[in-house]
């Protein structure tokens, strides 16, 4: 094997080596991200506890984790299905924005109430506040850490 082909092969192998160095660096980042993600398991934003539910669905006492957007109503497409005869199919939507929860009534027939007060349009919702949809009452709780 002469000098030329030796140096050519060194260069070629060096290129392949660096391709793998790059992959290795990338994989290290990926693994680090995955570890970080597993250390904080599913950042929960808040939860609703069902206080009273005469209709039975959702059952009283159930704890429901909340997404950044949680819709409530009788329709199955809602995040939380409220099977109550006084609930509209698309009744209300809860959204988490910045550090606060907001509730918006989606023009439901019987209205949405926060601590007994009807919601007009969008209203902020504090932890411990009680939300009423139809006959179902739910309490907003802080996420457990």
């Amino acid at each position: 094997m002469d000098g030329i082909s030796l140096s050519l092969w060194l260069l070629r192998l060096l290129f392949l080596l660096f391709l793998y160095l790059f992959l290795l660096a990338v994989v290290r980042v990926l693994v680090r991200d995955l570890r970080a993600a597993s250390r904080e398991p599913e950042a929960e934003l808040g939860r609703l506890q069902v206080v009273a539910s005469p209709g039975g669905e959702p059952r009283a006492g159930t704890v429901l984790a909340l997404d950044a957007i949680t819709t409530l109503g009788r329709d199955v497409n809602n995040t939380i299905v409220v099977d109550d005869q006084f609930a509209s199919s698309d009744h209300a939507v809860l959204t988490f924005r910045g550090r606060t929860w907001y509730v918006e009534d989606l023009e439901s027939t019987n209205g949405t109430y926060v601590n007994g007060t009807p919601v007009d349009g969008v209203s902020p919702l504090g932890y411990g506040d009680e939300l009423q949809i139809g006959q179902v009452r739910l309490r907003l709780d802080r996420a457990r850490r």
Binding site: D2, G3, I4, S7, L8, F15, F18, L21
Partner: peptide
Amino acid sequence: TLTIGSVSLNATVVAADAEQGAA
């Protein structure tokens, strides 16, 4: 990485045109 690849390509092309030699 890409620069090394490019150099390797260049060396191959140049060597193909050159006479056989030690370097």
